[in-house]
Simulated assay, not measured.
Amino acid sequence: MKAIIPAAGLGTRFLPATKGTPKELLPVLSKPVIQYVVEEALEPEEVDGVIVVNSPEKPQIESYFHVDGGFEETLRARGKEKEADEIHAAGSLPVSFCYQREAKGLGHAVLCASRMLRGDEPFFVLLGDYFVPDRQMCVRMAEVSKMHGGASVIAVAPVPEDQVSRYGIIAGECVGSLGDKNATGEKEGAVWKVTGLVEKPAPEDAPSHLFIVGRYLLSPRVMELLATQGPGAGGEIQLTDAMQRLLAEEEMYALVVDPAEGCDTGTPAAWAATNARMALADPDSRDLFLEALGNKAIEQLR
Rank of each mutant, 00 (worst) to 15 (best):
G189T: 10
A17L: 11
L93S: 11
R286V: 11
V53C: 04
L178K: 08
V50E: 04
G70M: 00
G179I: 12
L127E: 10
G9D: 08
V256Q: 08
L288A: 12
N54K: 00
I169K: 02
V139Q: 12
I298V: 08
G105W: 06
E121L: 08
Q163H: 04
P158A: 01
V256W: 07
V198D: 00
D120E: 11
Q163K: 06
A190R: 01
R215I: 14
V132C: 07
S30W: 05
L126P: 00
G185Y: 03
E86T: 04
H66Y: 07
E102T: 15
G119P: 01
C138S: 11
P207M: 02
G69C: 01
G230C: 05
R13G: 06
I154Q: 05
D241K: 10
R277H: 07
N275L: 13
P158E: 02
V153N: 08
P16W: 15
D264K: 07
A273F: 03
L301H: 03
P268K: 00
E186Q: 10
L10W: 04
F131K: 12
V153T: 13
A260M: 12
G176A: 07
L111H: 08
E299N: 07
Y36W: 15
A273V: 04
A242T: 05
F123T: 05
D180L: 01
T21W: 04
E188S: 09
E199L: 13
L301S: 07
Y216L: 09
A183W: 08
E199R: 09
A113C: 00
E249H: 10
K187N: 11
L239G: 04
F124I: 13
S145E: 00
E24Y: 13
F131R: 13
G70C: 02
E188H: 01
I170S: 04
T18P: 03
A3N: 12
